[in-house]
């Protein structure tokens, strides 16, 4: 009897090696209906970044507001993102077309551990990329909603912890921001631009799409199936207008300007091929590896800078 009890406890405590694919969890999570409050805390190279958010998932879209914000709300889903300001104005971005991504095949579930969280029955999956633990994600078994997501750096230090602190599986009716036709930025796919600054693949991130951003710029989208980033290449110099303090990072023959948010990083720099800007949700160590595979910072000659400034 004692031996039977020991075996039963061992089975319960041992992580269950699951046959489910990570994409199964993520696809179910993307359509989950719920509401809750989330706290995001991230340890970035530039210090701690955190936020409190209210999230509602309904009809395949997510609406995000903030209890401490100014009344703005954001709605995202199906290739569209709309931001409603407190004055009722709406700014939207729509993706006209998109290539199917590589999927999270590069990522494997090392373990799926049953448990409870916020009084809910959950399953926590440990996600690995090339043998490195990259995330621990806790899913609500009933709804499929993602209740907690911890992202790691390669040395297993925690980068970001986004956790629901309240959760309700009944999603309220929400009014997603409407759409002002005059304020919609449609991202049209293009092949017309010089793509030398945008590699096909970097550190396992594949360039899936490129969109015309404006007359002198192209925006490319990269994904490794889990993390992702956009890379803007402009024939003109680029500069960032923000009230936030930029961190200057010297590298190569020039420098990057950087802003870390809770879970995102934004880089802007000048290269021999033109101005570049990158925005993504990569952990810092992956971010550094990707940056090493992109055109390095450097100041073109005075004449080239002058020419680009005038004519792009």
């Amino acid at each position: 009897m004692r031996r039977f009890t020991f075996v039963a406890v061992l089975i319960l405590l041992t992580p269950v090696i699951t046959a489910a694919d990570l994409s199964d969890y993520l696809e179910r999570s993307a359509t989950a209906e719920f509401q809750g409050d989330q706290i995001v805390t991230c340890s970035t190279p530039d210090g701690v970044r955190d936020a409190v958010l209210q999230i509602v998932g309904r009809d395949g879209a997510l609406v995000v507001t903030s209890p401490v914000g100014d009344g703005r709300s954001l709605s995202a889903g199906a290739g569209s993102l709309a931001v409603a300001g407190p004055d009722g104005s709406v700014r939207s971005t729509q993706v006209a077309s998109a290539t199917d991504g590589p999927g999270p095949a590069r990522y494997a579930i090392a373990a799926a551990i049953p448990g409870t969280y916020l009084g809910r029955i959950v399953e926590t999956v440990v996600v690995e990329r090339d043998g490195e633990t990259r995330a621990r994600m806790t899913f609500d078994v009933e709804t499929g909603a993602l209740l907690r997501s911890v992202v790691f750096q390669a040395d297993e230090r925690v980068y970001c912890d986004a956790r629901m602190v309240t959760f309700d599986p009944s999603a309220p009716e929400v009014v997603a921001p409407g759409s002002d036709p005059d304020a919609v930025h449609v991202l049209e796919s293009t092949q017309d631009f010089d793509l030398r600054a945008l590699p096909d693949e970097v550190e396992g991130f594949v360039r899936l799409d490129q969109y015309r951003y404006d007359d002198s710029s192209v925006l490319a989208y990269y994904s490794d199936g889990f993390f992702a980033f956009t890379l803007l290449h402009s024939r003109r110099p680029v500069r960032l207008e923000t009230s936030e303090a930029l961190t200057r990072v010297d590298a190569g023959g020039g420098f990057y300007e950087r802003i870390y948010g809770p879970g995102t990083a934004l880089y802007v720099w000048e290269s021999q091929l033109g101005g570049l800007a990158m925005f993504g949700d990569l952990p810092p160590d992956l971010q550094e590896r990707v940056m090493a595979g992109l055109p390095e910072p450097g100041q073109p000659s005075f004449f080239i800078r002058w020419w680009r400034r005038l004519f792009g």
Binding site: S23, L26, E27, S29, A30, Q38, V40, R49, A51, L53, I55, G57, L62, V64, S66, L74, A76, G77, A78, G79, S80, L81, V83, R91, T93, Q94, V95, A98, G101, G103, P104, A145, L146, S149, A162, H185, L187, D209, Y211, Y213, L219, Y221, S223, G225, F226, F227, A228, F229, T230, L232, G261, P262, G263, T264, L266, A277, M278, F279, G280, D281
Partner: peptide, 27 residues
């Protein structure tokens, strides 16, 4: 940069509420 990222990432299999929240915070 964050708006196009948020719109495009919503079509990805790795799309999660956390990503949208992070996009929102990035603004």
């Amino acid at each position: 940069l964050s708006d196009p990222f948020g719109a495009r990432v919503s079509l990805d299999p790795g799309f999660t509420p956390t990503k949208v929240a992070q996009v929102r915070v990035a603004t």
